Simulated assay, not measured.
Amino acid sequence: MLLDIGILLVTLLGSANAVHGYSPLYRACSYNRCIYYAQIVQQSTSSSQTAAYLYQRCRCSAYGVPLYTRPSTQTTSTPVNNQASTIPVSPSQCGTSSITGSAATYLSNQRERIVGGVNTQECEFPWAVLVTADGSQCGGSIIDSTHIVTAAHCMVNGNSIKQASSVRVGAGSSNRNNLRYYNVRTVSVHPSYNPSTFENDAAVLTLQSPLPTNNPCIKPICLPSTRLNVQTGTKCTVAGWGLTQEFSGFAPSALQEATVPIFNKDTCRQAYGSNIITDVKICAGFQNGGIDACKGDSGGPLMCAEGDNWVLTGIVSFGNGCAVPNYPGVYAYVPNLKNWIESITNGIGK
């Protein structure tokens, strides 16, 4: 055991020196090495801070805020219109956008030429929300008047679930500067979430009060049917307020969107490992890279068409960097998580 710890410290300190010298090896470190650092960060060891430094510089860090972050001051407003009625969630009313019209038609007309995404129009995806917690940023999706779906890794800190009082949901605009923030009553993380592999990377936020229905930029997205089977090459759209370039540190004020095809699962397994890409994950992106989600987009929606409606097919989870060739984005696959999500929204799950 002592020998193992000694080797670990030598490895980490040697790696730290390489990173400080901007060695390209560790700026583009392997996925397994990144997960290795992430696991160390979650432990209370003297090497955890060095591991955190390396983890932040791995291209394969999660799309949300890295595990080791410095909290920043957040200014949020409290909910208004506490007596708002519930948002309709019938199949004919969820997943509709007056901007895009039919989801199927919209996606069929998208050309595969967007690099890094483009600005959305106001209210184009009225279910997309910004989720802040302890100084971090993630995305999320409205699924009914009081529930938001996001990524589990956005809602955990080590082995603990973040306090609901620290979480805010910004909704009501495609411009982050115009969002109104709402308080969260409970945070429900999938009971089988695995932070080492991002398995079951899903969480449901229950708001303290219903969202208002008089804002055209607040609508729910449909949950997909459990039988939904999206084929390789199917076009879907991902949206978020995350970084527009992997190392730019710039988060846009306008919600970004990009259309990406569903990636061949066997090829995705070859990239990340068969033990990582399971039935509760789906991959989307281009073999040559160039279009992807990035840090700060975690928890946001991967939206596909089921008929004319938009459905929440994936939850932005992780990837080997952002838009890196041969490494598509990986998403939690909602059809296989739907039963658990509905157990929370129906008040019977934990």
Score class of each variant (00 low, 15 high):
Pro91Glu: 05
Ala254Ser: 15
Val184Pro: 00
Cys94Pro: 06
Thr11Val: 11
Asn264Phe: 04
Thr76Glu: 04
Cys322Gln: 06
Phe198Leu: 06
Cys94Asn: 09
Val89Gln: 02
Tyr31Lys: 05
Asp134Ala: 14
Trp340Leu: 14
Ala251Phe: 14
Thr197His: 03
Ser46Tyr: 02
Pro220Ser: 13
Asn159Lys: 13
Gln56His: 04
Gln83Gly: 00
Val65Ile: 10
Tyr106Gln: 04
Val311Pro: 03
Asn157Trp: 12
Ile143His: 08
Gly172Leu: 07
Val230His: 00
Ser92Gln: 13
Cys304Ala: 11
Ile114Asn: 06
Cys58Pro: 02
Ile344Ala: 08
Cys322Ala: 10
Ile5His: 05
Gly314Ala: 03
Tyr106Val: 02
Pro301Lys: 12
Gln39Cys: 04
Ala128Cys: 08
Ile7Cys: 02
Pro335Val: 12
Leu228His: 06
Asn32Ile: 14
Ala16Asp: 01
Ser196Tyr: 03
Gln245Arg: 15
Val80Ala: 07
Leu130Met: 14
Ser274Pro: 01
Val115Ile: 15
Met155Leu: 06
Val19Ile: 14
Ala254His: 13
Lys295Glu: 13
Gln83Pro: 00
Asn175Leu: 10
Ser317Cys: 06
Phe286Gln: 08
Gln231Met: 05
Ser92Ile: 07
Asn32Arg: 14
His153Ala: 04
Ile114Gln: 14
Cys29Glu: 06
Cys94Asp: 05
Gln121Ser: 10
Ile315Met: 01
Cys60Gln: 08
Leu255Met: 14
Thr69Gly: 02
Asn275Asp: 09
Phe250Glu: 09
Ser108Gly: 03
Asn214Phe: 12
Val80Trp: 00
Cys123Met: 09
Val156Asp: 09
Ile142Tyr: 06
Ile348Gly: 00
Ile282Arg: 01
Arg227Trp: 03
Gly300His: 07
Lys219Cys: 05
Phe250Gln: 14
Arg168Leu: 03
Asn183Lys: 11
Thr105Asn: 02
Gly300Ala: 11
Pro212Val: 14
Ile114Lys: 07
Ile35Trp: 00
Ser173Leu: 05
Asn177Trp: 08
Val204Asp: 04
Gly135Arg: 09
Gly101Gln: 07
His190Asn: 15
Cys94Trp: 08
Leu3Phe: 02
Leu211Trp: 06
Ser209Thr: 15
Thr150His: 04
Pro71Asn: 08
Ala239Thr: 15
Gly249Thr: 15
Tyr327Gln: 11
Ile291Val: 15
Tyr181Lys: 05
Cys29Phe: 07
Leu223Gly: 11
Leu3Arg: 12
Ile161Tyr: 02
Thr73Leu: 08
Asp134Lys: 13
Gln231Ser: 12
Asn17Met: 11
Gln110Phe: 01
Thr197Met: 01
Ser92Asn: 11
Leu2Pro: 00
Glu257Trp: 06
Cys29Val: 13
Asp266Cys: 08
Asn81Ile: 02
Asn175Met: 06
Ala52Gly: 15
Phe318Asp: 01
Gln74Ala: 11
Gln83Met: 00
Pro224Trp: 02
Thr259Tyr: 06
Leu107Ile: 03
His153Pro: 01
Gly172Ser: 12
Val129His: 12
Lys162Arg: 15
Ile276Thr: 11
Ser188Leu: 07
Asn157Arg: 14
Phe250Val: 15
Lys295Gln: 15
Ile344Phe: 10
